[in-house]
Design a protein around this nucleic acid. Structure first.
Length: 1039
RNA sequence: GGGCGUUUAGCUCAGUUGGCUAGAGCGCUUCGUUUACACCGAAGAUGUCGGGGGUUCGAGUCCCUCAACGCCCACCA
């Protein structure tokens, strides 16, 4: 019979079979049930840009653990699955593939066709992601799967946008955006990264118009982007250089006072620089500041435009020339300066990165060419003071890897003032708790800035902004449009709303020159395909092309997926959700926005707890990513170690730390040797095995030569422990099967249970209590550790070993079988959330042999473990006395084994020993003595306070026990002497430490009495043990 | 510049409110194939708890300080 069960768990066939069973059994599906309490988690929707990585595996494992536990605890449990359309990321992927495979741009294809292509891509990747999640065992309600760009989410997005628009929380404004000239779209700040490159720093001379006696001829400004000078509209100088220098100096001196030694040198250097600089620069800067106040101008070279000299604190006297050119349309800081000073904005760029008509003769040149030409022309006029070479931080687009150009563009914004405050309040008054708590700081800090949220993106993939706009050129036209909207169309604000955006530029001539309309009228329509759309289009309105930031729809995820704005029964029952589990990098982007949108739309926070899990780094401390070649695919781990091992491994490393390191190996497909992946070898298309010397392919394999080779799995040996654990469980189950063939159900008589049964029942209760509490508090690593130790040590190594003796005794066999079935059953329940597959498999097979089991009376549990009851927390068997006695037994066992091992006594050689101990412990240990022959091939011949030591006693002391093993005829005197001397040494140093502690008056006076008593007792015991050990050593023959 | 975190065995990490003779897994050494399991069992070795100072009867744990590493945010004409 046992031959039918292989000695290793065949996870590869069990996983799909069990998952199908759960899915078909409808266990994943949740629907409102008034008899139960709801437990809801919404999945952080993975982007449809690619496959899931190990971070997702961690994130989703943790969610499934909670979901499965709550389901077993009797909650109506909904885990809402779905994916995110991930706006720019997805569009960029599809566009770049279009380029490489078909040499087409999105403009060749057109909006509709491109979006169609992206939908195809989405289908493909969504399928893949869902399959990955299912292979991991994720018990989401797959019938409810959503997509942030599907119709249901779209309705929620439109309602939300309309509501914000109507309540004046949405506006259009000019804003400098990070413009990607390659993709021709704005990208968000977090899609920009900086690269440090060697670059030039040009110092340009702008001639001063009509310099007076004693005034300089030029003002010098410095820049890394000289071509932007064509858009300059001022030169700024600090209004009070003297005050600025003084302030800097005093600040530095303050810092110097409290600085640490290591900081001192740097501060002193900057202090010297400031003082030196003030000496040479103060007078000229003050002169320039005065000229600025007098309204003087400089001549902008090449463009030959006079531009004003202005004062602004943005010009920092300590930097560069102390003066700064102001290009409001192409630099975020300059834009602010321009706004303060009322400067005109001159945009010199086309969206494709070529210069426009404002650039005069430079029109049509790309930025790079324009820069070269501008520098040449300035040089020809001797207007370049100097060129420095230095390290420059160059902003690049994460999507196209091309330089970012700040560009002024119309963008839509959400006013954050009140919304942000509501989200701050929700956390500060604990309606939402973020764990670990330290992350609340970044959440609150970020929201506190209350910066308006730019929500428009110049993309085609996303929720198109539901606004129709019309430019208005005169006051009369504006009145006419107003009348039409108010009277003609009778827009009353319930299903459409409108705004008038007046041009910031009041000078009509300038406005016309910059072709800015007097005003723009925006109409927002709540419902899709409203007839109003057509009417507006007939009257000169056109729809805004932009789509919304992907986070706009993600922000609605907890309620949009439940059907909002419809008043569904799901929404009423499952919202607010219970917990959100996510990673720290999207606390601001996502978590904060969900909170404020939940409050805005429903008046309730979307979840009460947010658990932030650690980030997984590779063995060198770097972020894992596919592009770096150090990313682990969860499917590789599942293939090699099984889904349960993946999950256990993930949960096991989930401590409260912010990062976790995981060394990455690639496995040779020929001989299964693991080869460490390092910075050196991780980007190779093929690797040669260090053991069998055969080559194999990696993810980078491209040439036919390489792709023909078998691919190595990218893994981490950190999953081996978990895999071994699954196998240990499997074999414990095999053992049970072997011994339950004649199982007969029936009650277990509590009064007849031996001490080891009391002990395991107590442990079971304790572990249930611990694990439940730990999972309640997101202490996943602690919970798995507890389960691992209990299952491996207590259950397998101790309890099963002890049961073997009873199972061989016909009189005691049936009670032992019932205890075995019960304990295994309970253990499987506790492990199920972490390792659903193997536990379900074992549990079901256990039912074949022992359908009715339980303590003290047998019951017939439900068919599937996934819906079985979570073990109850009782403390009936929790008994410290029994725990202590059992631990004494275990330590005595180890002691006897130790002697055997030290003395090299063959395992088959039976040995004898006696135990000298007090009457209480002796009677407690009595029932366990029978196990020594089984577990150590050793016989305890006598026990009690006055036993006579055997012929050649080898003493060993454990707490209150003195164990004397008879070594007659076995002894290696030299080894034994050494062993005892070592033990005596240890005792002596221990005694010394205790003595000095107890002779310290202050310790005796201050320490709590129980601590002192413990020291005294310990000392007495040690001294007794020592004297007996010394005596024993003296008796030892000399060899 | 502001905020946060980490530093404990060769490696990856635990160590709740100070009471520790500092633990686990992997790796290492020795022994073992007795029918659950060699993805196993038994035993063992390995630590100035990053450095220095302080508080305390007592510090891996609390405070100060120095150092190294990492993350986030801001800024860089």
């Amino acid at each position: 019979m046992i031959e039918e069960i292989p000695s290793r768990f065949d996870f590869a066939t069990a996983q799909p079979r069990l998952f199908k069973m759960w899915e078909q059994g409808g266990f994943f599906h949740a629907s409102p049930n008034p008899d139960k309490k709801p437990f809801t988690i919404v999945i952080p929707p993975p982007n449809v840009t690619g496959a899931l990585h190990l971070g997702h595996a961690l994130n989703n494992t943790l969610q499934d653990i909670l979901v499965r536990m709550r389901r077993m605890q009797g909650f109506e449990t909904l885990w809402m699955p779905g994916t995110d359309h991930a706006g720019i990321a997805t569009q960029a992927r599809v566009e770049s593939r279009l380029k490489t495979e078909e040499n087409l741009t999105r403009h060749d294809l057109g909006r509709e066709k491109l979006v169609e292509r992206i939908w195809q891509w989405k289908e493909q990747y969504e399928t893949r992601i869902v399959s990955q999640l299912k292979q991991m065992g994720c018990s989401c309600d797959w019938e409810r799967i959503r997509f942030t760009l599907d119709e249901m989410c779209g309705t929620a997005v439109r309602h939300t946008f309309f509501d914000l628009f109507r309540n004046d929380r949405i506006y259009r404004g000019k804003r400098l955006v990070n413009w990607d000239t390659f993709l021709q779209t704005a990208v968000s700040d977090d899609e920009v990264y900086n690269e440090s490159v060697q670059g030039s720093f040009w110092h340009l001379r702008y001639p001063i118009i009509d310099p007076k006696q004693g005034e300089p001829e030029f003002v010098v400004v410095a820049t890394t982007r000289p071509e932007t000078m064509l858009g300059d509209t001022a030169v700024a100088v600090h209004p009070d250089p003297k005050g600025a220098f003084a302030k800097m100096e005093s600040e530095l001196r303050d810092r110097l006072r409290i600085a640490s030694a290591s900081e001192r040198a740097a501060i002193e250097t900057s202090l010297e620089n400031i003082i030196e600089r003030r000496a040479s620069m103060l007078a000229p800067l003050e002169q320039l500041a005065k000229m600025a106040v007098d309204g003087r101008q400089v001549m902008l070279p090449l463009a030959s435009r006079p531009i004003p000299l202005i004062i602004d604190t943005w010009a920092r006297p300590e930097l560069g020339s102390g003066c700064v050119k102001i290009t409001p349309a192409h630099d975020p800081n300059d834009h602010e300066v321009g706004r303060r000073a009322g400067l005109p904005l001159i945009n010199i760029l086309h969206p494709d990165g070529k210069l426009n008509a404002e650039a005069g003769v430079y029109e049509g040149l790309a930025i790079k060419a324009a820069r070269k030409k501008v520098v040449e022309d300035l040089d020809a006029k001797s207007l370049i003071e100097k060129v420095e070479q230095r390290q420059i931080e160059l902003p690049l687009s994460d999507r196209s890897k091309t330089p970012i150009e700040p560009l002024l563009a119309d963008q839509w914004f959400v006013r954050m003032n009140e919304l942000a405050q509501s989200a701050i309040d929700a956390v500060t008054d604990n309606r939402v708790r973020i764990l670990p708590q330290r992350y609340t700081n970044s959440y609150v800090d970020w929201l506190s800035e209350k910066r308006d949220w730019p929500v428009s993106r110049q993309l085609w993939w996303g929720h198109q902004i539901p606004v129709w706009s019309r430019a208005v050129e005169s006051d009369g036209e504006l009145d006419e449009v107003r009348r039409e909207l108010e009277d003609g169309l009778n827009i009353n604000g319930t299903s459409a709303a409108w705004q008038v955006e007046m041009c910031e530029e009041t000078d009509e001539r300038k406005r016309k020159r910059m072709s800015m309309p007097l005003a723009t009228v925006h109409v927002c329509i709540q419902k899709e395909n409203d007839p109003l759309e057509k009417i507006l289009e007939r009257t000169g309105f056109s729809r805004v092309d932009d789509v919304l930031d992907t986070w706009f729809s993600s922000a609605l995820w907890p309620h949009s997926t439940l059907g909002w704005p419809a008043h569904t029964k799901e929404l009423a029952y499952f919202y607010p959700t219970s917990v959100l589990i996510t990673s720290r990098d999207i606390i601001t982007l996502w978590v904060a926005r969900m909170v404020l949108m939940g409050l805005n739309n429903l008046g309730k926070v979307p979840f009460s707890q947010v658990y932030i899990h650690p980030k997984i780094l590779d063995g060198e401390g770097e972020t894992m990513s596919k592009s770096r070649g150090n990313g682990i695919d969860p499917l590789d781990v599942i293939e090699k170690f099984g889904a349960d091992a993946l999950r256990f491994g993930m949960a096991h490393l989930c401590t409260e730390t912010q990062d976790v390191r995981m060394p990455v190996q690639i496995e040779c497909p020929h001989c299964e040797t693991s080869i460490e992946l390092t910075r050196k070898n991780r980007e190779l298309p093929r690797i040669e095995c260090s053991k069998c010397n055969k080559p194999f392919a990696t993810q980078w394999a491209e040439s036919a030569h390489d792709t023909a080779l078998p691919r190595g799995l990218v893994l981490s040996d950190r999953f081996e422990t978990a895999r071994n654990f699954t196998n240990k469980l499997w074999n414990a189950f095999r053992f049970a099967m072997m011994n339950l063939s004649d199982y007969a159900s029936g009650p277990i008589d509590v009064n007849q249970l031996p001490i080891e049964d009391h002990w395991i029942l107590g442990r079971l209760e304790n572990v249930t209590d611990q694990v439940t509490g730990m999972l309640d508090n997101f202490r996943f690593a602690d919970a798995t550790r507890e389960l691992y130790d209990f299952a491996w040590q207590d259950f397998c190594s101790n309890y099963i070993e002890l049961l073997k003796e009873r199972l061989g005794d016909p009189n005691r066999r049936s009670q032992a079988q019932r205890m075995l079935a019960h304990t295994l059953d309970q253990l499987m329940r506790l492990l199920h959330p972490v390792m659903p597959f193997i536990t379900e498999e074992i549990w079901q097979r256990l039912a074949d042999f022992a359908p009715q089991r339980g303590f003290p009376n047998p019951e017939m549990p439900t068919g599937c473990l996934i819906e079985a009851n979570w073990p109850q927390i009782k403390q009936e068997f929790h008994d410290p006395k029994i725990e202590r006695q059992f631990s004494l037994f275990q330590r005595a066992l180890t002691a006897v084994r130790d002697i055997r091992s030290q003395q090299n006594i063959p395992p088959k050689k039976e040995i004898e020993f006696v135990i000298r101990t007090n009457a209480d412990d002796a009677s407690a240990l009595q029932p366990l003595l029978r196990y020594f022959p089984f577990l150590a091939n050793a016989e305890c011949t006598a026990m009690g306070p006055d036993v006579t030591p055997p012929g050649m006693p080898a003493p060993l002391t454990v707490d209150s026990l003195e164990i004397l093993v008879n070594l007659e005829g076995l002894i290696d005197v030299a080894v034994e002497r050494k062993r005892r001397e070592k033990e005596i040494d240890r005792m002596q140093s221990s005694i010394q430490a205790k003595k000095s502690k107890l002779s310290n008056d202050k310790f005796v006076a201050n320490a709590p009495p129980e601590i002192i008593q413990r020291e005294r007792d310990g000392l007495t015991q040690l001294e007794e043990q020592l004297s007996s050990a010394v005596a024993g050593l003296a008796e030892l023959p000399l060899g």
